[in-house]
Amino acid sequence: MISRVRLCRRISFSVSAIAAALLLSACGSPQDDVFPSGPITLVVNWPAGGGMDRAGRLVAEYARRHLDVPIAVINVAGSGGAIGIRHVAEADPDGYTVGILGASLVASQYINPNANAVEDIDLIAFLGPDPAALQVRADSGIDSLAEFVTTAQSEPGSIKNGNDAPGGVSHIAATLLERTANIELTLVPYRGYAPTVSAIVSGEVQSATLPVHQLIDQHEAGDVKILGVMAETRHFMAPEVPTFREQGIDLVTGDWRAIYLPNGVPEDRRAFLENLFVATMNDPEFQAAARQQSFFISPMGAADTQRFIADFDEALYPVLLDADLVKARHK
């Protein structure tokens, strides 16, 4: 009985300690002349717990070490990521609101007439790509990308591929694969990556176009084979798997993650934040932590990020046009 009381006391102490720490950290003393002088808010445009959320919280955790002010992470989710982007795009351009987003930005500006366009925001740093790959079930008898293409060509539509809903990254990857390799698959839509993983493991579909890390375990166990990575270089988690380019198909696609601001943030603050995030991403400790969570980190500054995203936009538009998904901002 005594020990229980003591335990409770100790716990109530730790609770109040945590509460006090959180309280202190939430109260900055803002001064106008120094930036930043108050807490910075990092907006994640997907719900708590997903890949984007983990990336955002990890960046915030390590960026904090280069700063005297706290970074608070909030999730503003909805409409396939468009609501969170609008939240940042319409925030005061004082540098205290930043956001993290992914490839959904580029797709939803065409699919959703109410989504913001790439021009509506100011991209300042690139976290890294999350390249797509092509996975097949081991019992499908397909052993290489060439065999996959031959099978799909000889019996069009016979291979069922698990992917996102139209406009999602793995759907775009599958559509691009169909176009570049000139094949026809049956695209089966799933809501997110985990159900797609389930589907290929249970045998409902024969192939999938998921990011490398989603099926790495099954690949190592031999149930699933990764035929190729849609990236410029091989993936650190599966270095033995060749890229698509190495196998003669020029296909580089997948998700990516980047940090952005609302348009119109004063130049000095913008430069400060760009340096802050690029420095954070170059921090070896951050890179080690990110690798452990299977994030591929290749930092870039504002200019390179914007060039990268413009190229991505260029490549994506015809795909969406073909799939009849362009409902706004026709070019």
Binding site: G51, D53, D217, Q218, D223, A289, Q292, Q293
Partner: peptide
Amino acid sequence: GALLIHGLRPGPL
């Protein structure tokens, strides 16, 4: 996600 942060990838292996 929490397990991944600590370097543990749940799965058959």
